[in-house]
């Protein structure tokens, strides 16, 4: 029990070290901060503008009013921020490790390789998007008079955790295929382009797309379902569903990585 505890302490020390070093690199480029802020604000106003166009043609978008749709957008922006902060900088480097052969060094470290590859770097440039996302959600919740109780906040962060885990697992699954296919390192970009659909409530899409976004690529569980839980459109039991789906995806990503490594270590030269 104690050794397990020590292990976690040790891992968090490692992570702190990682992040300290990666922040040190990023903060050398101050111009990026400005560009990132402008880009996040631009994206926000653009999205609000497009959303307002939808509502010009009718009072509801797939049965959602404007503020409810804003919550979906807010969750999307938070996930986008997490992508910029953690997923993109770490997972897009896996292919470089494979190409340069430095994956060997990662595998020879006495630490879980998936952890190392997924959390080595943290980039501050995703923060503005996460912050604005949270503000947007608070603003909308107040506007539609949802009770901001501690319980609801807890529910919200549980949902957010689950949907981040699903997002991470999807990214990691695609990124780890680069162990076989170095040439299609940009497969994660395709995922990213499809995830854009998560900006809007799923019910706003025609049935065909809705089916794809629910069962094939679980975008519905990334933004829409969490939003439904917070607003109270569906019962709280839905949290369990999101959590189970998240657990399944995470388990698949770990299994797949083990499988990929087996291939790597039995075929690499």
């Amino acid at each position: 029990m104690k050794s397990k505890f020590n292990k976690y302490i040790n891992i968090s020390m490692v992570l702190l070290r990682f992040w300290q070093t990666s922040l040190a690199i990023e903060l050398e480029y101050q111009l990026n901060m400005l560009i990132e802020l402008v880009s996040v604000l631009g994206n926000l106003f653009g999205s609000l503008f497009i959303l307002s166009l939808f509502y010009k043609s009718g009072p509801l978008l797939g049965g959602w009013n404007f503020f409810e749709a804003l919550i979906v957008l807010g969750i999307y922006m938070i996930l986008e921020g997490i992508t910029t902060s953690i997923l993109a900088p770490n997972l897009s480097r896996i292919v470089n490790h494979v190409k340069n052969g430095t994956l060997d060094y990662v595998l020879l470290k006495p630490i879980d390789s998936q952890l190392w590859l997924s959390l080595r770097i943290i980039s501050p440039w995703g923060l503005p998007s996460q912050l604005i996302g949270i503000l947007l959600i608070i603003y909308s919740l107040v506007s539609i008079q949802v009770d901001l109780s501690l319980f609801n906040i807890l529910i919200f962060f549980t949902c957010l955790f689950a949907s981040s885990l699903i997002l991470y697992s999807l990214w990691f699954l695609l990124a780890s295929t680069s162990i076989w296919f170095v040439k299609v390192w940009n497969a994660t970009e395709v995922l990213r382009s499809i995830l854009v659909a998560g900006r809007y409530p799923m019910s706003a899409y025609p049935r065909g797309l809705r089916t794809i976004f629910t069962f094939l690529i679980p975008i519905a569980f990334l933004t829409t379902v969490p939003a439904e839980v917070i607003i109270g459109r569906v019962s709280n039991e839905y949290i369990a569903i999101i959590l189970i789906i998240a657990a399944i995806f995470f388990a698949i990503s770990r299994r797949f990585w083990k499988f990929a490594l087996l291939h790597y270590t039995s075929a690499s030269s």
């Binding site: 490692v14 020879l108 630490i111």
Partner: peptide, 28 residues
């Protein structure tokens, strides 16, 4: 054990070696 490969480096390009070394210290 350790493996050193002359043509592949583990130190991060943009950082001083000390930073990468301290990460290794934490890992081990």
């Amino acid at each position: 054990i350790t493996l050193v490969m002359g043509q592949k480096q583990q130190l991060l390009w943009d950082l001083p070696p000390l930073d990468s070394i301290k990460v290794n210290a934490a890992v081990y």
